Computed example of a mutant assay.
Amino acid sequence: MTETPIDRLARATPSSLARRAKGLSDRTIAWIFVTPTILLLLAVNIFPLIWTIRLSFTNYRSNRPNAEVKWVGLENYQKILTDDGIWGNMQATAHFLFWTILLQVLIGFTLAWLINRKFKGNDLLTTLIVIPMMLSPAVVGNFWTFLYQPQIGLFNYIEFFTGTPSSSFEMLGSVTLAPWAIVIVDTWMWTPFVMLICLAGLRSIPDYIYEAAEVDRASKWRQFWTITIPMVLPFLMLAVLFRGIENFKMFDLVVQLTGGGPGSVTELASINLKREAFEKWRTGYSSAYAIILFVTVFGLASIYVKALNKVKER
């Protein structure tokens, strides 16, 4: 039976009738909705990046907007790459990155492995463990500053129990201990994040694999190294990627704890960048500094992602 125009009209929805009336295809409708979002992303992300790149080749200072702006070429980049102070900041950043990521991976995976073993109170314990990562870095910084306070803080009780003067444990005021103080706080705050990622990896392993290994009389230790670690490795690497990127630009927590001191032993690259941009007002110089940090993070992350993809393909 041939369909009449009246039948087609009866089957048509109001939206399809409106599109046909305007002569718009589904693809055109999709672009109408997507285009504003694309333009917004370009305005918020791409334009500032291009503007920063342009400023990095000038001597522009934002506190002198009416001063003559000179094109200095690669001079800012040359100064940054030959500045011993900045290399010291990068060394402090590398120390912070290495130890926080190492400790968070080790402790986070251990906690995930323990929690994955079902026991009474499992859910309550998991909730308690993840509380630190839910707190604001400003709150965490103030909380731990109080704990580190040598007169009234937690370390003040070391003298009572050990007889060692509490001033010997003045974490935030010690050139030797201050870098470890910020490592401890970041580890305490973000280990739960790594734990959750590892827990997802552990729970994604099918039970039948372990059952097959037990049939083959594989020991628990052998199951751990030949099944658990290889199958959780992509999740571990993903956690390292996330924490590496976040800790490379760490700012607020360290500022709350030490402000970059004592001296400059905890002055990470992000803190030094803020000083150059908003205290010394060397806008062109700090723009070049920001581009160098961006290229460093982007390059290292790209290499790491390639390695991660290779592990997933195995």
Rank of each mutant, 00 (worst) to 15 (best):
Y60F: 10
E68P: 04
R61P: 00
F57W: 03
D26G: 09
T28L: 13
R61D: 03
V72P: 12
L42W: 07
W31Y: 04
S56D: 04
Y77T: 06
G23W: 03
N63S: 15
L39K: 00
L55K: 08
S16D: 14
Q78I: 10
I50D: 04
T52G: 04
K79L: 12
L42E: 09
R54K: 13
I46V: 14
P65T: 09
A67S: 15
Y60A: 05
N45C: 11
Q78N: 13
V34D: 03
K70D: 14
V72F: 06
L49R: 01
A67G: 12
W71F: 14
W71P: 02
W31A: 10
K22R: 13
W51V: 10
E68M: 01
I50S: 03
A67R: 07
R27Y: 02
T35M: 14
P65Y: 08
I50N: 05
S56M: 02
L74T: 12
S56N: 02
T52Y: 04
L40T: 10
R54L: 10
G73P: 09
E68Y: 05
L41H: 03
L17K: 08
Y60I: 03
K22C: 12
L17S: 07
T58S: 12
W31V: 11
A21Y: 06
A18Q: 07
A30F: 07
L42M: 06
E68D: 10
E68V: 11
I32V: 14
K22L: 13
A18F: 09
T58K: 10
R20L: 08
N63D: 15
E68F: 06
F33D: 05
S62Y: 11
P48S: 02
G23S: 08
Y77S: 08
R19K: 11
P65S: 14
R61H: 08
E75H: 11
L49W: 03
N63F: 12
S56F: 00
R54Q: 13
W31M: 11
N59I: 01
I38K: 00
I80Y: 03
S56I: 02
W31G: 06
G73V: 05
S56A: 04
F33Y: 13
F57T: 01
I29S: 04
S62R: 12
L40F: 13
Y77W: 12
R27W: 08
L40N: 07
G73I: 06
T37E: 09
V44H: 01
R64N: 14
A21E: 10
L49G: 07
K79M: 13
I53E: 00
S62L: 13
K79R: 14
G73H: 08
I50L: 12
F33K: 06
L74F: 14
S25M: 08
T28C: 10
I53R: 01
A18N: 09
L39E: 07
L40I: 11
D26Y: 13
L42P: 07
L49C: 04
F57H: 05
N66L: 15
K70H: 15
W71A: 09
T58G: 07
L39F: 09
G73M: 03
L55G: 02
